[in-house]
Each structure stands twice: as C-alpha cells, then as structure tokens.
C-alpha cells in the first residue's frame, strides 16, 4: 500500500534523505561556505526589464497564472516580491493580476510588504493588485485587456500557466512589451520561448529566489536540491542497469531492487 495516499518505507527513506541533504546544505551555507550558482539569463533580465519600463515611463505587468496557493505560485510570489522592490526603488508602477481568489489576499499582502521593505509604502495602490476571474480564458483576455489599456512596457509571467500562456504572451509581444516568463510545466515552455524575450526553464524556476537574493540560506537549499537530483539520477542508472541485466523491467517482477524502485511509483 503506497501511492499518493500514504508513503511506503522506501518513499519515506528517499524523501527523508533528500530533505536532510537540503537542510544540511542550508546550514553549511549559513556558516559561510562559498556556493557557486551558474548564470541564469532569464533571471538576469529582470532588472533590465524593470529598467526598460522606468525609462519608458510605463507600468510593469505581472501575472501569477491560474493556480491558487501552491508551491508554484509561492515561488512566483517570491519573484514578484523582488520585482516590486526593484520597481518601487525606480518609482515604476506595477500591475499584478491573478486568477485565484484564494491567492488574491496573500498577493495583496506580499506586494504591500514588498513596497514597505523598499521604504516606499506610499507607492502601494490596492487597485493595482487585481483578481480577474477564475475562468482560464476569461482570465487570459482580462490580462490582455490590462496590458493593452495600461500600455505596459514589460510583462512578467511567473506561475502556473496552461493553454492561456500563448494568448497572454503573443498579445503582449504584439503590444510591444519586453517579456520574461517562467513556468515549471514543460508543456508551456515552448510557447513562452516562441513569444518571450527571456524564459526561465524547468527547475531554474525554483532557483529564482536564491539566484535573485543570493541569501546564503536560499543558495544552500539550491545546492542541496542539486545533490538530491544527483541521487535520483543515480537511482535511475541503477534501475536501468539492473533491469537490463535481468532482461527488462517486465520480466523482473521478482527482482527485489526493481520492485523497491518501482514501489516509489505506487
């Protein structure tokens, strides 16, 4: 018995060890150990993108996508927070749109906090954080309407996007905005690559807050995350080698190691 309902012992052990590795990396980084992060162009572009809006005297637009409060949108909030602080320093207006009523109050609060942290609490305008609708395509068209009416110079799309990604980004491009997008879903990445100037791909998305703030705690977690990924790769290689040696996964139902690895998928 396992699956998404409850963990079996193998999943618990794997999960536990990965968590432990990440926490240990965080502690090591907090003690001052030097950590290297490679360059991520999509995240480097954020400053340039906000700068462009400042030079043009036009607002910045930020969409958090369709999800409510999930890990994907919480990461988007972390990026938004950084962008709001930048925009506040440059006295550039930022309009934020969400498709989740649940996320909306959290979004409003973190934007307010970001303005306060940047010492510009007076720049916060509650009407600039907007709940559009929970309907996917109505949200897309609502965001396009905001981009067109506000004549945004820069559009950021960070969060959980689905079929509406192309509608948002293609219209944004047609309106002449510089666009930066990030989404962990591999299906939407090609659409963003075709329509945006910079795209943050796959797990780069989760590296964003560490990369942008360079806080030792976050950088350490990033390193831990890479080590955990290496463990997964090693397990895949072990699985492939053993399955090949015993004549394929289908005929290996009695192989202890393969059953163990497969139990993680149950």
């Amino acid at each position: 018995m396992g699956g998404l309902e409850h963990a079996n012992w193998f999943m618990s052990a794997l999960f536990g060890s990965m968590c432990l590795i990440i926490v240990v990396s965080v502690l090591l980084a907090q003690r001052g150990r030097e950590m290297f992060i490679r360059r991520i162009p999509g995240l480097n572009a954020i400053e340039e993108a906000v700068g462009r809006a400042t030079e043009m005297g036009r607002p910045v637009f930020f969409s958090t996508g369709l999800h409510g409060i999930t890990i994907v949108t919480l990461q988007a909030l972390a990026i938004l927070s950084y962008i709001v602080k930048l925009a506040a320093v440059h006295a550039t207006r930022i309009v934020v749109a969400t498709a989740s009523a649940t996320l909306y109050p959290v979004l409003e609060e973190s934007v307010r906090e970001a303005y306060t942290a940047a010492d510009h609490p007076e720049a916060f305008r509650s009407e600039d954080v907007r709940f559009v609708t929970e309907e996917q395509f109505a949200y897309a068209m609502g965001c396009v309407g905001i981009m067109a009416r506000e004549q945004t110079a820069t559009n950021f799309f960070f969060g959980a996007f689905f079929a509406e990604s192309l509608i948002l980004a293609e219209n944004g491009r047609a309106l002449g905005a510089l666009q930066v997008a990030g989404c962990p879903d591999p299906v939407q990445i090609p659409f963003f690559i075709a329509t945006c100037d910079y795209v943050v791909i796959g797990d780069e998305y989760y590296a964003a807050s560490a990369y942008l703030t360079r806080e030792p705690t976050l950088t350490g977690s990033l390193i831990g995350q890479d080590i955990a990924k290496a463990i997964l790769i090693a397990l895949v290689i072990v699985g492939v080698v053993v399955a090949s040696a015993v004549g394929g996964a289908d005929s290996a139902t009695n192989n202890f190691l393969l059953n163990l690895l497969a139990s993680g998928a149950q």
Binding site: F15, M18, C19, I22, I71, V72, L74, Q75, P184, P186, G202, D203, Y205, Y206, A207, S221, L222, G224, Q225, A228, K229, L232, I233
Partner: peptide
C-alpha cells in the same frame, strides 16, 4: 525530476 526536487526544496 528537476521540477519535482525544486518543488521539494521550495
């Protein structure tokens, strides 16, 4: 894989 581990760390 990358996204799942990234999600776990987040």
């Amino acid at each position: 894989f990358g996204v799942a581990v990234g999600g776990l760390a987040m």
